[in-house]
Each structure stands twice: as structure tokens, then as C-alpha cells.
Design a protein around this nucleic acid. Structure first.
Lengths: 154, 154
DNA sequence: AATAATAGTTCTACTTTTGTAACTATTATA
DNA sequence: TATAATAGTTACAAAAGTAGAACTATTATT
């Protein structure tokens, strides 16, 4: 890819980031039952099934002490399960509990309505192309994210 | 658009938001010369040229007292210019100064390298399609954002 | 002219996020 | 076995974001 096109792409990445974060409403506090950061953690766990504390921190880009604090809160709420790896007892694996999974699904539904109303300004064609593009963006980010976490492991 | 496809779209929106925010590195502190929120404000001003205090707050989704505090900091740094609207003297219009514009351009370039390294895991074809999709997502978000701000005006 | 509405400010307190340093337990290395 | 490296925790501090209430100045409404 040409250098110039890459620069344009990165410019788009930079400028779309805050838009993405802000345009479609607040992250996800709503119930105030949980902090946005904790909600993100639950979403990652829902997508990726299981993480060690360290890898969860890498995904969320937060430091280890913060992972501990965050996971403690999620455990206190029963949203997450802690289990130590038997092969390497240093590792503590975190996964979603049934309660945590239900919580996310229920809350996301509430959040749906909020976003849905914002989408009403778009035509049917715009919705279609937005949908396809977003899927592509998501897949790409996921790929970058996974490549990134693997690199950090080595 | 079918209800089911819309639900899938929204699900993607929700799950891609935290990815977008986190996957590609920290928002934009870097120099620590400015907070991420203030940086976002500068980016909005770069795109939209001019905002009243209230509209800026709506774009950034922050309350009026916080707009004041944020803009004060930006003015102290000389990144932004304050001017009152002559037709409606209640309005205070904010726009980027030359210094602010230069600051953003310079800092974005630094940020480029960080993102560029993350993109190296992608093939040329993936970069191309990512680029196109992202442009579409950006345009769509911008459209939603503008529709939203106009609605709030009425 | 009186009243209501809007734009912005000030003051204040609170939540959320974030980072650093020192520590324990376990595993890998030499 | 001694040492280094890794995973996670604890304790503390500080930055950043957020919001409510009361206030001034200006414009719109009646």
C-alpha cells in the first residue's frame, strides 16, 4: 500500500476514534451497577472466553494492579470466575460466570434502544453499507488486537 | 432493513467501541502537555472549524461546566480562540488558533508511527479494504453526529 | 415591561482511571 | 541449587472525567 494512502488511513483512524467513543452515547454505565471499564472487561471475556489476569490487562491496556482491582469487583458481583491454571500455578484464569453473561446480554439490550434511535437518521442503503463496513473494521481490529497480544507474550 | 440485521449491526457497534478505543494505543496523552479530552476537543475543532461552547459540549458529550474548564485550559495554552457572536451575545464561539492547529498536526504525526507499527500485521489487501470500510464508518458516524447536534438545537 | 428561556461561569464534590513501588508465590534458567 | 524472570497482589497517590446547584448576562416570549 502506498505511503500516502497509509497516512490517510491512519488519519482516519485517529479522527474516528473519538467519534466512535462519543457519537453513540456513553460507554455503558447506565445502571451504574458497574463501571465502564469493568463493562468492557466483561465484553472481552464474552468474546474471548477466557483470559489470564495479565492477558486481560493487555487487552484492556491497563496495568496489573488495576486488573486485580477490576477483577475483584467483578468477582464480588459474581460476574466472573477465578481459577488457577494447573500447569502453571502462577496463572489465574478469568472467565465469565452465567450471571455475568446474562448481565451483559440484558444490559446490551437496554443499550440497543439508545443506539437504535441514533441510527434512524440513516437511510436503508446507508445502514446496509455501514453494517458491512463496520463488520470489516471490527474483524480487522480483532486481528490487530490478537496479533498484538501474541507479540507481547513472546 | 430487517430487524434482525439491525440488531446484529448494533451488536457490532457495541462490541467494536471498546476495541476501537483500546486496540490502537492510548487516546493521545503522549506529551502529557494536554489531556485526552482536550485533545479530542481540538480534533473536533479541526474538523468542524467552529463551535459554540454548548455545541462543543454536545459533541464531546460533556456538561457545560466542564466545557468551560476544558476551554479555559486550551486558551491558556493558546490552542484555541474565543470570540463572542455579534448577533447573539450570549454565544461564545471557539475555534482553533494557528498554534492549536499546528500542535494537532505535529502530535498526530508522532502518533502515526505508533499506529503504523500495529498495522504491519495486515496484508496489503486487508489494508485496502480496512481503509475503505473505515472511511465509510467515519462518514456515517459524522452524519449521525451532525443530525444529533441539530436535533438538540431544536 | 414582566417573565421565561438560553448561554455560559463558578464552586464544589465525587467517580473512574491510571501509575509507581514494594511485596509474595511460582516457574525458568544457568 | 542459586538466580532470574514472570504472575499476581497490596498500598498509595495522582490525574482525568463528571455532574449538581446557584449564579450572571443576554435574548425570547407574553
Amino acid at each position: 500500500m502506498q505511503e500516502q494512502k497509509i497516512l490517510a488511513l491512519i488519519d482516519n483512524i485517529i479522527s474516528v476514534k473519538p467519534m466512535f467513543y462519543k457519537t453513540l452515547g456513553k460507554p455503558v454505565p447506565m445502571s451504574s451497577d458497574i463501571t465502564p471499564g469493568a463493562y468492557y472487561a466483561l465484553m472481552y471475556l464474552k468474546k474471548h472466553d477466557m483470559f489470564s489476569m495479565s492477558d486481560l490487562g493487555k487487552m484492556l491496556q491497563i496495568s496489573k494492579p488495576n486488573v486485580t482491582a477490576l477483577v475483584n469487583k467483578l468477582i464480588a458481583k459474581g460476574f466472573v470466575i477465578r481459577s488457577s491454571d494447573k500447569l502453571d500455578r502462577r496463572l489465574i484464569m478469568i472467565r465469565l460466570s452465567a450471571k455475568g453473561s446474562q448481565f451483559i446480554e440484558k444490559n446490551n439490550k437496554k443499550y440497543f434502544e439508545q443506539i437504535k434511535s441514533k441510527l434512524q437518521t440513516l437511510s436503508d442503503e446507508e445502514l446496509e453499507s455501514f453494517s458491512i463496513s463496520l463488520q470489516n473494521v471490527k474483524d480487522t481490529l480483532l486481528k490487530i488486537s490478537i496479533a498484538d497480544i501474541n507479540e507481547l507474550k513472546n
